[in-house]
């Protein structure tokens, strides 16, 4: 099961974790924002210290006597739910890909000697990483005195090879793409635009009703036609919520 870690809605409509803010090295702000950034791949799950996150939650929301903090159970449940999903996401992301170097790609368990060597190498890398972290910390906050200068136009030199390559690209004809794999055209944008225009004569129209009897290809082309017509100002598209029902309305 993969729960959506951003679903922190309470049955009553409020969001149990809305008040929980986090202060991490990689992110500072509402917990829900952190989840959204992770899901949008704008923040690497690798970079989020989950143990620290859980500790932070426990420190912020210490367990109280039963009944004294209404909503605590829902909040804790939501947090456990989302934190479990994060653990799952991180676990999956950490599993090495099938691409393994050369002969090590076999499924066999490593020999004790091999395991020992790997662990010793990893231990060294780990200690090296700690030493690096220390060096990075010591050298943080140093700002160089100069600024990058823009290259002066007369200093821009284009090499002969680069010029020849650019000329070849400019004067050569682009190869015609192969279209043999494409099937015959069975529906056109114009046909479906005409259908939409006709249907709109009767008033606003639900997109679902429009494509009810259509196959996937026709539905997609109908959507594209509706978008084109909306762009041209010949109809208005309205949707009350994301992924909600789409309504086409005539502009005149």
């Amino acid at each position: 099961m993969t729960a959506d870690p951003t679903s922190t809605e309470q049955p009553g409509g409020g969001r149990a974790l809305a008040a929980f803010t986090v202060e991490l090295d990689v992110y500072s702000g509402p917990y829900e924002g952190l989840l959204a950034l992770i899901l949008k791949d704008e923040l690497e799950i690798f970079e989020v210290p989950l143990r620290e996150l859980v500790t932070l939650y426990r420190d912020t929301n210490p367990p109280g006597p039963p009944g004294e903090s209404p909503g605590a159970l829902e909040r804790d449940t939501d947090f456990v739910d989302s934190a479990t999903s994060l653990v799952l996401l991180k676990g999956r992301a950490l599993v090495p890909t099938a691409e393994v170097e050369g002969e090590e790609a076999e499924d066999e368990a490593p020999s004790p000697q091999d395991l020992e060597e790997r662990l010793v190498t990893y231990l060294k890398i780990r200690r090296g990483a700690e030493a690096l972290a220390e060096r990075f910390a010591q050298n943080a906050g140093l700002y160089a005195s100069g600024h990058f200068l823009r290259p002066r136009p007369e200093r821009l030199v284009v090499g002969k090879e680069r010029l020849a390559k650019a000329a070849r690209r400019a004067f050569s004809r682009t190869a015609e793409p192969k279209v043999s794999h494409l099937g015959p055209i069975t529906v056109t944008l114009q046909e479906l635009a005409a259908l939409i225009r006709t249907s709109l004569v009767r008033g606003p129209l639900s997109f679902e009703d429009l494509v009810r009897d259509m196959d996937r290809l026709r539905s997609a082309v109908a959507f594209s036609a509706a978008l084109s017509m909306a762009a041209e100002g010949r109809l208005t598209l309205s949707q009350s919520e994301p992924f909600g029902p789409l309504t086409l309305e005539p502009t005149e």
């Binding site: 690497e44 799950i45 599993v95 890398i125």
Partner: peptide, 15 residues
């Protein structure tokens, strides 16, 4: 990248 993954024992592509 594969050698880094192998040395660390985990997928490091995102890092």
């Amino acid at each position: 990248r594969a050698a880094i993954n192998a040395a660390r024992g985990v997928n490091s592509d995102a890092v």
